[in-house]
Amino acid sequence: MKLWVLAFSAAIAGATSAAADSLKSGYALCAAIDNSGLASKPCEVSAWSSAVIATVDMDSGEARDVCPRIAGLMKERGASFEAGWTLQIKSPFSNGESIAYCKL
């Protein structure tokens, strides 16, 4: 019984740490996007959707090009995201729909 509790505690600690790292990295990415001056509205981090959501005035071709570049830069700088996290780029003219997304 005690062994199970120890194993479960270790698993929870690892999961909590990974989730916290994802959120920390998500907020760092949002800060970079907001500070770039390119965002049309403040960037959002959604733990529920495992997503960083940026609204930028660009067309879908530009967004599809820049999205993986941003993800790559974050990875180069040591950002850590759990599997399933994405960067979603929206346009102020896309009625709230993503015009590009990529894995973080």
Rank of each mutant, 00 (worst) to 15 (best):
C67H: 05
S17M: 14
G72V: 03
N35H: 12
G78N: 01
W48A: 11
E44Y: 09
A54Y: 02
F81W: 03
S80L: 05
A39P: 00
K2T: 12
S36V: 04
L23V: 06
G37L: 08
V45L: 15
K2D: 15
S17A: 10
E76G: 10
Q88H: 07
S36K: 13
G84P: 09
S9V: 02
A15Q: 06
L6S: 05
G61D: 12
A47N: 12
A10P: 14
T55E: 05
L38Y: 13
V5F: 13
D65H: 11
P68D: 00
R69C: 05
L29A: 06
W4R: 08
K2M: 10
A28E: 12
K41E: 15
A18F: 04
C30V: 00
V45E: 14
A11T: 09
C43D: 00
T16L: 14
K75P: 00
M58Y: 12
S22M: 06
W4A: 14
S40E: 04
I70T: 04
I33W: 05
V56W: 06
V45I: 14
V45S: 12
I89F: 04
A71V: 02
I53K: 05
G84Y: 02
D59T: 05
A19T: 06
V52E: 03
W85M: 01
G26S: 09
A13F: 14
A54M: 02
P68A: 00
A71Y: 02
E62S: 07
S46G: 07
G14Y: 10
A11Y: 06
A31F: 05
R77C: 02
N35L: 14
S46M: 02
M74S: 08
D34L: 03
Q88L: 06
E62H: 08
K90W: 00
A31W: 03
S60R: 12
R69G: 08
S36Q: 06
D34N: 04
L23Q: 09
W48P: 13
A47I: 14
S80E: 08
S49R: 15
K2L: 14
V5A: 15
A39M: 04
D65G: 05
L73P: 15
I89N: 06
G37C: 08
A19K: 09
A83Q: 14
F93W: 13
A54V: 02
G72H: 01
S46I: 01
A63C: 13
S17Q: 12
Q88G: 07
A19D: 03
P92A: 00
L73K: 08
F93A: 10
M1T: 14
S25E: 09
S25Q: 08
T16C: 12
I33V: 15
G61Y: 04
L73C: 04
W48G: 11
V56Y: 07
A32F: 07
A31M: 12
L38W: 12
L23Y: 07
L29M: 13
L38Q: 11
A31I: 09
L87D: 01
L29W: 07
A32E: 14
S9F: 04
A31K: 12
A28Q: 11
S9Q: 11
C67W: 06
M58L: 14
F81N: 01
S36N: 02
N35S: 11
I33R: 08
A13T: 05
C30I: 01
K24P: 15
I53Y: 07
C43W: 06
W85S: 01
A20V: 12
I12W: 09
